[in-house]
């Protein structure tokens, strides 16, 4: 859960599909859990793609391909569209991913990742397609995500890009703080707003 971010360097797991929705990340039938058991969600990440109907691992799905590993998921554009279920972020975190790289994230899912100390890194289409090519050519391709500098680097080519992260959230991620800690400190401001708008 709460963990501090600095520099992450890792091999990647590629998922070169667009519009991966949160129903695929974690199907609705797993949403009946009443606790935040990240192992349970992580074990069922991409369940219907990852396992065959008989429950055996589907060898064609990337999470079952022994060539690929690492704590960085690289996905096609519009990752995390659809349902607001935070369970999707819990599943990604529970599996062990700390960073998701895509050229475009759906809004709610992006926030959910940040609130669970998974870093969504938005890159250009060009960076993304080159990275997919590099990983395909060499599954041991590494990427470096430098949170303090806000840069992401494809170590196979040296290509590097700046990524967006507001100063507030960057401070939270680097220090392992969440938004509720911040909001609880602002009670006077909340009450002042209520008084002004009564």
């Amino acid at each position: 859960m709460k963990q501090k971010f600095d520099i992450i360097q890792s091999t990647c797991v590629p998922l070169p599909l667009e519009n991966v929705d949160t129903d695929q990340i974690i199907p609705a039938r797993f949403l009946k859990a009443t606790t935040r058991d990240e192992k349970f969600f992580g074990d069922n990440l991409f369940c219907d793609w990852r396992y065959k109907k008989d429950g055996q691992p589907n060898p064609e799905f990337v999470l079952n391909d022994p060539r690929y590993s690492g704590c960085i998921l690289v996905a096609g554009k519009n990752f995390g569209s659809g349902s607001s279920r935070e369970h999707a972020a819990w599943a990604i975190a529970g599996y062990g991913f700390r960073v998701v790289i895509s050229s475009f994230f759906a809004d709610i899912h992006r926030n959910n990742e940040l609130n669970n100390f998974v870093l969504p890194v938005t890159v250009s289409e060009k960076f993304l397609s080159e990275l997919f090519d590099c990983i395909k050519a060499n599954p041991k391709t590494e990427v470096k995500v430098d949170v303090p500098a806000q840069t992401v680097t494809n170590l196979a080519t040296g290509a590097s890009e700046h990524f967006d992260l507001n100063g507030y959230k960057k401070y939270c991620l680097m220090n392992g703080l969440d938004d509720i800690d911040f909001l609880l400190e602002s009670k006077n401001k909340i009450e002042a707003w209520e008084k002004a708008n009564a």
């Binding site: 909001l183 602002s186 909340i190």
Partner: peptide
């Protein structure tokens, strides 16, 4: 608008949410 579970907790705790203005 729709929010995640951590944000539900934020609103319960503070009747506020932290969001970038769309």
């Amino acid at each position: 608008f729709g929010i995640g579970t951590s944000e539900v907790e934020m609103v319960m705790a503070s009747q506020c949410i932290l969001q970038q203005k769309p």
